[in-house]
């Protein structure tokens, strides 16, 4: 942790496990956006996963063991915001870690981290004036997918839209199904692949009907699901993380 933060805004970035394995571009693009804004950022070296795959499957023991490693990596003694480019991982750390670590030696640290953790787009939404000054621009028709945990647990709906609206030339379309689950659901996608894919198709039909060029979301899990299905079907819609779209608009 650099101790010469001084007056500059500084944040930590937790790339998440999907970010480490499949969606590496997301954290990189988040860093490009933060660079453009002049915000210092730093990735703690030893984070793993927030424990959500096991937690949401009902296996608290394995969830706690894995989350503990990430908790230790994030608990650096600073008060810096911890940005997470994933609504559902943010929700896990912010809302569920306290319960997961309740009655354990990590309880206090879990509460500390829960207070610091921030979903990326809600953090960027506090910098829309600065973003506008950077004149982001991209001529695309965009639909936004509200991921379930971000919408219904964190109650973040407007923030990502406010960030997208800073981009000149970007047309934001409200999809009828923006709040409907994409069918990913973590382990659900593997337990019930046919149902999961059918759920994605419902969303994709809506995107095609709305004639969008790009689907933006703030959850790598949903994006893995929707991009994966659209790739298989040859659907002419890109599915990208908000960080990626903003990085492209600022490039």
């Amino acid at each position: 942790m650099p101790d010469d933060v001084g007056m500059t805004a500084a944040v930590q970035l937790f790339p998440t496990c999907i970010g480490d394995v499949v969606a590496q571009q997301t954290a990189t693009d988040a860093e490009r956006v933060l660079d453009a804004l002049g915000i210092d950022h730093h990735r703690p070296s030893a984070t793993t996963c927030c424990g959500q795959p096991a937690y949401n499957s009902g296996h608290d023991g394995p969830a706690r063991a894995v989350a503990k490693a990430t908790l230790k990596a994030l608990d650096d003694g600073s008060d810096l915001p911890i940005l997470v480019p994933s609504g559902s991982c943010t929700s896990m750390v912010r809302l569920h870690w306290r319960e997961l670590f309740h009655g354990t030696p990590e309880a206090e640290a879990a509460t500390r981290i829960a207070r610091r953790v921030r979903e990326l787009s809600s953090y960027l939404a506090e910098h829309t004036d600065a973003l506008r000054e950077l004149k982001p621009s991209l001529a695309v028709r965009v639909g936004y997918h509200d991921s379930c945990h971000m919408l219904r647990e964190l109650r973040i709906k407007e923030a990502p839209r406010e960030v997208l609206q800073t981009v000149a030339g970007l047309e934001l379309v409200e999809l009828d199904s923006s709040e409907r689950c994409c069918g990913f659901g973590g382990t659900f996608s593997g337990r019930y692949p046919d149902v999961s894919v059918a759920m994605a198709d419902t969303k994709i039909d809506d995107m095609v009907a709305a004639k969008i060029d790009v689907l933006v979301s703030s959850d790598p899990g949903c994006l893995m699901q929707l991009a994966g299905r659209m790739s298989r079907q040859g659907t002419p819609v890109r599915a990208v993380h908000l960080a990626t779209l903003m990085a492209e608009a600022l490039a």
């Binding site: 893995m224 991009a227 994966g228």
Partner: peptide
Amino acid sequence: RRWTAGRDLVVGKR
């Protein structure tokens, strides 16, 4: 298998 039966896994820029 359970993923790729109906979906791809997009790992790079498409």
